[in-house]
Design a protein around this nucleic acid. Structure first.
Length: 753
DNA sequence: GGGCCCGCAGGG
DNA sequence: CCCTGCGGGCCC
């Protein structure tokens, strides 16, 4: 708009344009948001006194043209309790003229209205609609610009949420204050906003309908021996230094061949029988590799020049990369000086050509193969990169590729990737995946050479009838052998519903105390913590990552430096006036009450079930596997059932524990078979403590027990692995310990909830 | 934060 | 067998 340079007065009455302090006569107060503005510095001051009374500041007039929204967001305004933009204004004026309200109350109401309206009425029964979380999202979360639920939400340090695009537009106009409360937006956030993934999950949870169909299918397939690989990458003995830098890459958990194209489905995931879900995050490339998503642990492109490329990693290695989420421009590899002992080098000294992995990507482009994409936290310039670790973002296709002179002056290979996945991307609150979209206009194509575009129909394409992306041609035949486990026992394990309590812990836990966030705050770097953790007990301190002697990662308080506990970015400014993210808090509160209700319901159901035949489930499972009828297998089946339940509802575990004999028997067997009996003893001890603590509310665990609490969720999984290993072959204690560590450290952010 | 160094997997 | 590689830990 015209008011690019317009800025209001700050909290101290200082004009943000001229830095002077105008007298009351020289200021104009917006009738909508009540912000004072310096008349002399306005690009368009009202012509008459009468106009001045009715004057509306540039920000508010901007609000009403709904920056960033293609059309007036009538629906959102309707949801906020007003019928049209005019009604919204009328509502604001009504607040202004209400003498019964104090200035503070007025401001509060104005903000409620502007941020999408007041919360749902207190007395309303949320469950009646069957959409508990959605109700609290009824406007309270909306972006102040477009009045819709934030699309790719970003959170300002003052705790207000906006769409990424609206925010960027605002910042692009030179605005450096929050559109809601006028707090300053840090320069770093203005230039590099990061999507608040916890909020994405919250919004999607709210939007998601309850009809989550479970598609548990079992299929027979071949396995090859993968037992001789440790679960975790481990340090070689001859390495001079410890750590993953000198590591073996670890066991591959999925049963896809290394040249598998497309998503990794439940059929190929005997560990969990759910496949790799969009949004799943791992600590590093090694762990990402273990789930078969992107195999090379240094290279960015996985592929063969004669076959095609299966996956790419975006981790900020090439400055030419350009990320727009649903589409991005990728740079090929090569042309760098890697002489000596270097593995990477930022400097490009040679031209790139379509050869090796660059050619592999071109093959995928020509054939229209699906390419898996992971983003790493190392990509700092992209708003779509995860805050931590490596995240699977789904399937993309290479629509075009070409060569051009890169930023460093040498020729680079370039690829246009466009997303085509059946699941929504981790940054969008859409419930559905991609639809075919027109190709973006790429400016640099003008100066491109060696342009390659697909001529034949793609092998992976959208089926309009079925409404999903799928193979339209047979996928390229694998030239390699399967990874995978020798036994198929994992296949019988069915995917369990995740309880609301578990979802809460998984998606909304504070990264300091590891409990569900209490008064959540979002840092400018888009990490979320409890208010108390950030400013209370740890006031004036910050944290640094540190390894314990066992190699576990902990957070240690570091005095006098205020760095984000998650990413070590300086957040001193934020900590001076940290604000709670009320919207996120609303979602968490609602989920907490939902969890309580769910748990109550389950207790009732359990009581009912107890009357029925308690042995039937075990019998039924045994019948499915009549080919393997020996006693050992029967025992393993029982174990699988137990572990399934342990991974599911927490309350289920307590229920199932009245089987102490079976448990002890197995432990005894393990003890005898394992080289180091200590593992099994600790196993016993561990399960004992877990049992003892389970009835306690997980939220109330002491900080000192953090590590134990951390272990509690993935433990059952790790325990099962260890048991299985112990019963199948003899494993050295080093490998066993390593297995536990991997499981406890893996960050999982399953997008499908 | 930058430089150095390491093992490893995979392509060719 | 050699070369390549958008890792990762540690030291400075």
């Amino acid at each position: 708009m015209a008011h690019v340079s317009d800025l209001p007065c700050d909290g101290d009455g200082i004009c943000m344009v001229c830095q002077g302090k105008p007298s009351p006569d020289e200021t104009l107060t917006c009738r909508t948001c009540a912000t004072p503005w310096h008349v002399a510095c306005l690009s368009a001051a009202p012509p008459t006194m009468a106009d001045a009374v009715q004057w509306e500041c540039p920000d508010c007039s901007l609000l009403l043209v709904a920056a960033g929204a293609p059309e007036p967001p009538k629906a959102a305004i309707a949801a906020a309790g007003a019928g049209a933009p005019g009604d919204l204004l009328a509502a604001i004026r009504a607040i202004e003229t209400d003498d019964s309200l104090s200035e503070l109350e007025k401001a509060k109401r104005r903000q409620e209205l502007l941020s999408g309206g007041a919360r749902a009425p207190e007395g309303e029964d949320r469950r009646e609609k069957g959409n508990g979380v959605l109700d609290i999202l009824d406007g309270s979360l909306n972006c102040s610009f477009c009045m819709q639920l934030p699309e790719r939400p970003v959170t300002t340090p003052c705790g207000h949420n906006f769409c990424l695009k609206c925010f960027q537009k605002w910042v692009g106009q030179g605005k450096r204050t929050c559109a809601n409360c006028r707090h300053e937006i840090p320069a770093k956030m203005a230039s590099q906003p990061r999507i608040n993934s916890a909020l994405v999950i919250a919004i999607r949870m709210a939007k998601m309908s309850k009809s989550n169909s479970e598609n548990a299918q079992a299929k027979v397939y071949h396995f090859i021996h993968n037992q001789n690989r440790p679960d975790k990458a481990f340090t070689t003995e001859r390495a001079k230094r410890a750590g993953k830098a000198n590591a073996c890459s670890g066991k591959i958990f999925v049963t896809v061949p290394p040249d598998h194209f497309g998503p990794i489905l439940a059929d190929n995931d005997p560990e969990r029988n759910q496949g790799v879900l969009v949004g799943e995050t791992w600590e590093d490339r090694m762990e990402c590799r273990q789930w078969g998503v992107h195999l090379p642990h240094v290279a960015g492109i996985a592929g063969q020049s004669s076959h095609g490329a299966q996956s790419v990693a975006l981790s900020g290695g090439y400055q030419d990369d350009e990320d727009h989420g649903e589409w991005f421009l990728y740079t090929g590899s090569g042309g760098r000086d890697l002489t000596g002992n270097r593995r990477t080098n930022k400097e490009q000294c040679k031209d790139q050509h379509f050869e090796k992995s660059n050619e592999a990507l071109r093959v995928s482009c020509k054939k229209g193969h699906p390419v898996r994409v992971v983003r790493s936290h190392k990509e700092k310039r992209s708003a779509y990169a995860p805050e931590t670790g490596v995240r699977y973002d789904g399937i993309y296709r290479v629509e075009k590729c070409w060569r051009k002179v890169g930023i460093q002056g040498r020729v680079v290979c370039r690829y246009l990737f466009v997303r085509c996945d059946n699941d929504p991307a981790p940054w969008t609150s859409d419930e559905h995946g991609d639809r075919p979209r027109p190709l973006p206009i790429v400016k640099e194509l003008k100066g491109a050479k060696d342009l390659t575009e697909r001529k034949d129909p793609p092998s992976w394409d959208y089926d309009a009838e079925k409404g999903c992306w799928m193979w339209k041609k047979p996928p390229p035949k694998s030239r390699k052998r399967y990874w995978g486990m020798e036994d198929g026992k994992g296949m019988r394990r069915s995917r369990k519903h995740m309880s609301v309590r578990e979802k809460l812990l998984k998606e909304f836990s504070c990264q300091i105390c590891r409990n569900v966030m209490n008064l959540p705050m979002t840092t400018p770097c888009a990490h979320n913590f409890c208010k108390a953790c950030l400013e209370g007990a740890f006031a004036g301190q910050s944290f640094m990552r540190q390894r314990t002697c066992e190699g576990r990662r902990t957070l240690r308080a570091q005095k006098n430096i205020m760095k984000c506990p998650s990413c070590s970015i300086d957040i001193s400014d934020f900590l001076q006036n940290p604000q709670v993210n009320r919207e996120l808090m609303g979602v968490i509160e609602s989920l907490q009450s939902q969890a309580l209700e769910e748990e109550e319901e389950e207790e009732e159901e359990e009581e009912e079930e107890e009357d029925e035949n308690s042995e039937s489930s075990e019998e039924a499972d045994g019948a499915q596997n009549n080919l393997e009828n020996d006693a050992e297998d029967r025992e393993n089946d029982a174990e699988d059932i137990e572990n399934d339940d342990a991974e599911g509802e927490i309350s289920e575990e307590t229920k199932l524990l009245p089987k102490p004999e079976a448990e002890t028997e197995k432990q005894e067997a393990c003890k005898q078979k394992a080289e180091n009996p200590g593992n099994c003893i600790s196993d016993l001890v561990r399960s004992d403590t877990a049992d003892a603590e389970l009835p306690v509310d997980l939220n109330n665990q002491e900080d000192a027990e953090d590590e134990e609490a951390n272990m509690a969720v993935p433990e059952s999984n790790a325990r099962q692995l260890r048991k299985r290993k112990n019963c199948n072959d003899v494993v050295s204690p080093v490998k066993l310990d390593a297995g536990v560590a991997t499981k406890s450290k893996r960050v999982k952010m399953a997008a499908a909830i």
